[in-house]
Design a binder for these strands. Structure first.
Lengths: 145, 145
DNA sequence: AATTTGATTTAGAATAATTCTAAACTATGT
DNA sequence: ACATAGTTTAGAATTATTCTAAATCAAATT
């Protein structure tokens, strides 16, 4: 898919607008790249993929666009152990599973009550606005899914 | 406390030994620094603190020592959002709370059954050997603890 | 006790992801 | 049309960390 679905295009310009930012071709393209292949790409991978569709885009712009998308809440950064930051457009509550063998990161859906329930381990004075849950391990033999 | 308690000294040389590594004054000192002030220092902070007690130590050695301690299981790395890696000698099961205002990181004890229970969100083929739980937010007014 | 061996320490260079800078470009509102 | 402000761009700068190679140290062996 080379272009943004109408729905996503709308969500994008709404979200950017709401954050006081403009909708630009570069931002649309980067967002489209993220939606298109949801395997938690790094900025560098996003750059490569975006460049293949929009050859004049620069690395700095990719970083700028990713930052804009994160700021307006459409994309989340995923940081795992000093590795380059990855970008994830999955807004549903989920955990991440990091495979030690392949290095790949998988989304694992988590019921939102459970996600909230986690905050109960916090003493009263700690007020959390975000929770991050990361598993590390490997996939059982055979199933690369 | 400028030196390692007998108990910790024993745990250290046992753990290093077990990993086929030697017990050195630098490793002891770095470990002591970590046990001494458990506020999740970065390598740089560990360097400064260690240097004040052992002025000839180098940054590279601090990194080496920290790596040795992590390898032999006495210390855990804590990575939060692209910030410099922090080091944590707390081996009990716990989560981390990252205060957006101060940047400080706090340990939050978590019952080990709960820690294990988390793995139940994983589909069968995912086999996790470690779980990481990080909250982000702020401390309620007044209580800096 | 001297010697070999291998691990460790050290200073500084190298690396890699990300951020910064300043100029060019684009779009928007007046 | 014009001014203003946001965006893009290339390349330089930054920063945490790793690498390199030489010097040091300690354990094991002769």
């Amino acid at each position: 898919m080379k272009t943004l679905k109408q729905m996503d295009r709308g969500a994008l310009s709404d979200a950017l607008d709401h954050a006081g930012q403009r909708t630009t071709p570069q931002r649309e393209m980067v967002f489209s790249v993220l939606l298109d292949e949801r395997n938690h790409p790094t900025a560098d991978e996003v750059y490569t993929r975006t460049k293949s569709r929009m050859p004049t885009i620069s690395m700095a712009t990719v970083y700028n666009c990713l930052e804009a998308l994160v700021t307006c809440g459409l994309v989340k950064q995923v940081n795992i152990e000093r590795e380059p930051t990855r970008y994830c457009p999955n807004l549903a509550p989920h955990a991440h599973f990091h495979c030690r063998e392949t290095g790949r990161v998988y989304d694992v859906p988590v019921p939102s009550e459970m996600m909230k329930g986690l905050a109960q381990v916090l003493p009263g004075e700690y007020e959390a606005d975000s929770v991050e849950l990361v598993f590390r391990g490997h996939l059982a033999k055979g199933k690369t899914k």
